[in-house]
Design a protein around this nucleic acid. Sequence first.
RNA 1: GGCUCUAUCGUCUAACGGUUAGGACACAUCCUUCUCAAGGAUGGAAUCAGAGUUCGAUUCUCUGUAGAGUCACCA
Length: 438
Amino acid sequence: MEEHKKVITRFAPSPTGLLHLGAYRTAIFAYLFAKKHGGEFVLRIEDTDKERNKKEYEDDILASLKWMDLNYDSFYRQSEHVETHKKYLEQMISNGHAYISKEEAKDGSGVIKEIVRFKNPNIDISFEDVIKGTVTMNTTDLGDFVIAKNMNEPLFHLAVVVDDFEEGVTHVIRGEDHVSNTPRQILIQRAIGANTPIYAHLPLVLGPDKLKLSKRRGAKALSEYQKLGFLPNAILNGVAFVGWNPGTEQEVFSHDELIQAFDLVRVQKSPAVFNEQKLEWFNKEHIKLLSQEEIESNILEWLPEDKKNTKLVPIIFDRISKWSDVRNMIEIGELDFFFELGEYDKTGLIYKDVSKDKIIMNIKSALEALEQISPEDFNIENIKNALMSIADKLDSRGELLHPIRYALSGLAKSPDPFIIASILGKNETIKRLQNAIV
RNA sequence: GGCUCUAUCGUCUAACGGUUAGGACACAUCCUUCUCAAGGAUGGAAUCAGAGUUCGAUUCUCUGUAGAGUCACCA
């Protein structure tokens, strides 16, 4: 019998700082829920606090949502609605739900101002929360709370209620830190004749200290993840999994799959500690979903001009979980030997307790075998065959493979000798091996 | 402190009142080509405590404990 209204959700951030993942998770859930039900997702910038608002923060929010491909169906700033807020304010004053109160300004300036207070009926308010169930609170403690600084400066509670009502918001999906605001807002709804939307208060996202995620305690702004070279789909996927799961064992989801699978009912009741390692895992999984061409072009893009070598891509791919790891590998010199091998400690050529003479002999036999391969056939396959046939005859493969790899890289830890040799090419490989035994 | 909420491996979580309490991340060990990485296999690791209801409780109820959120002329 229930009339099926079109679902309308909203994300209502205030542009007073860079938003972290906790805030964006709210946006993601509101977006997924709306899309899942073929509804609309509204972006409303809550900029009624003139003192703290900054345009740059609004720009950041817009850019981040765009980056994640969270498209909103409508957008506006709360400040553009003051006339509407004023209309309801006047209505509430005239019908006795609110009143103007002359009070000394709280800033200590001694100025007498005319603020608007809500006439609190001091009653119990209950509301049904999709996630938390029935929540009941008594509003007496709230007193006659302030709803506007003056007729032209509405405050949060009034503005939220009026705007949600005017936009026909059906589901208010927001952080749990708003539960205690809800009774106040329901009171205002009743006073202006608005119906109460369906509430879904999301459990908080916690930092490693198990406290509400905050920038002060090291939470990154979403734009930082973008700069670190995370994939937007991975962020979407990873963040959606904080406090929600599809009930199956599938964890890697595309944007559209997420919309299909999302359900407010499966949102967790308890807060969740955000795990950045898992986010990196999600990112790697999403990188694996990319085409070879995309992976290659991204890695190349993060490589400095003089080191853009396509042959390095497979080696790098295995060793990164986000694009900025490419830059890190370069910065710590992990790939330097592919371009130039300087002086290195030759005692490192020795494998376990094998004698130096034996090591030199092994390198020489490797040299002979590699000389047989023509430069154009100098690929991983052939190099491996040549080297392994020698190595297998030895007491242990390491006494050949280790010195070869070390002679090519100058490092105790590196990719295997076959791939290094194939990347270096025949000439350079022979050169380095000869250099190792002089 | 008042009010509100929450409680399963280290972390994220699954489990019609009946499961050897499952999975993922992380960790450890082994394998895969000497090392590293990637991949594969294996392993350790949890129902906050105490009552009650029930043939049977992670699941329902109560109490306790612990933790979180919130108490503005911010949002």
